[in-house]
Design a protein around this nucleic acid. Structure first.
Lengths: 252, 252
DNA sequence: ACTTCGCGACAACCTAAGTTAGGACAGACC
DNA sequence: GGTCTGTCCTAACTTAGGTTGTCGCGAAGT
């Protein structure tokens, strides 16, 4: 199912849209030492406070980053989908400042820290392409600060659902604003800074108004423009022009 | 007051702690084309939606990044101090996703986008050092998501004040947890996702309890450990070991 | 000396969201 | 078939923080 070479090839294709790579760059990426591993839902990939030894890329499945306050409250700070290079931090920072946990069953490719650093030093075009990933991550974090800081529950949840719709669409995992979202309401609460009870109330209101449809872990947005407006969602911050992996066939 | 060469030299010293630079790297940094400009308080340095043409570094003064929701609510997503490379986004992303505005009167060094990109491609060690700045920014954004999402007003404000104390101390601008913070209560509100009224209430409570002292724009934290505890502040996320500019004399 | 303006202080009232505590149901496991 | 366990749903009640509006003061301008 996960042809190991295709993982790197997809990455090469994505990076190629950012900076023209030469044969050496492509070869370096293709021969980058790595190990693909299956991670069960709920398992930790990175732990807060650890000394990182590797970077990783999600091949299949969903994962999220979160932090826990001293009082024990959990805040999810990002959700990652297949193709996302998570934990580039692990290549250059000396200590992890957050946890990374699998949301669904994942296939994750791990790259040793030393190999990443070597790659960066030897192949500046590749480094530049990866750095763009870090910058886009930062942009999404900023939008999350806004979401949690200045939007009410209704807009907050709507915004999250809009973000997922667009990111998954670009990754070829959503079609016509329908997608699978393997998150419980408690996790949605931790991502939006709300309580599970209030997430429930709000989801139901949105559903009653026909702004979203859901059963189990599937979400559909029947009236995109309406939900977009409720969310105050504008996709600039996703920098999608620099994200498209060019790897999945267009909806047909 | 701002010897232009010292700006770059300080940057070189900071980067040198992250990756060993060679003479070529140092020379490239020293000859990096740039223009230092004075920006009055409240003036915009970058505007949301613009096509960026340059990157910038704060030489002197404070600046902040913010976004405005469709409803007109403002959220400050980061505050920057002298020595901070802001808007590395401007070197690699194709559109600005937020505003950057001067908080106090600033001296800002601007670097053209093309020159930055050339520097990155020609000097991978320098790129790596700058990339670390982007990663640390990201880490701070994550902590802000937690702050705004999962802490109450009291801890939120305490946390912000703790963060400033440590960052300014490392930059040589705070001593024994005393520093100047050129922010109005309204701006503090926009940074914490609260209302100015509630910021006022909360600051007064903290002051009444002897956890902070303030007059005008000066803040002092007489009992660091106590405030740290109220905030639930742990400085890991600042990655201070990779931040120290090595440029300012230690407190003596 | 008077006015304007930006900020901070303070009070009264209101509401969005949190808290607590159940119950219903589906899958997994014995 | 029964028992967990996790997730969703619901209701009643509470509260942290928002809203609105007024006042005071110091700095800057005329």
């Amino acid at each position: 199912m996960t042809d190991p070479s295709s993982v790197l090839d997809r990455m090469i294709r994505k990076f190629e849209r950012r900076a023209p790579l030469d044969n050496g760059d492509r070869k370096a990426l293709r021969t980058l030492p790595h190990r693909v591993q299956t991670i069960e839902p709920g398992m930790y990939v990175v732990r807060d406070g650890e000394t990182p030894t590797r970077s990783c890329l999600i091949v299949e499945g969903f994962a999220y980053r979160h932090k826990v306050t001293v009082e024990g409250a959990r805040q999810i700070v990002s959700v990652h989908i297949p193709g996302d290079f998570i934990d580039l931090d692990g290549a250059l920072l000396n200590v992890s400042d957050h946890n990374v946990q699998a949301l669904s069953r994942c296939e994750i490719a791990f790259f040793p820290r030393a190999a990443m650093q070597q790659l960066i030093l030897d192949h500046p075009r590749v480094a530049m392409a990866m750095w763009v990933d870090t910058l886009i991550d930062g942009s999404i974090f900023r939008e999350w600060v806004v979401n949690v800081g200045r939007r009410d529950a209704r807009s907050r949840i709507a915004h999250l659902l809009c973000e997922f719709a667009r990111r998954l669409e670009v990754a070829g995992l959503a079609h016509e604003y329908r997608y699978e979202l393997p998150m419980t309401q408690e996790q949605l609460a931790d991502a939006t800074g709300l309580t599970p009870v209030h997430v429930n109330r709000t989801l139901q209101t949105l559903a009653r108004e026909g702004l979203i449809e859901r059963n189990r872990r599937f979400v559909a947005i029947p009236r995109w423009e309406a939900l977009r407006k409720v969310a105050g969602f504008s996709e600039t911050y996703l920098h999608l022009d620099q994200v498209k992996s060019n790897g999945s066939p267009p909806t047909q």
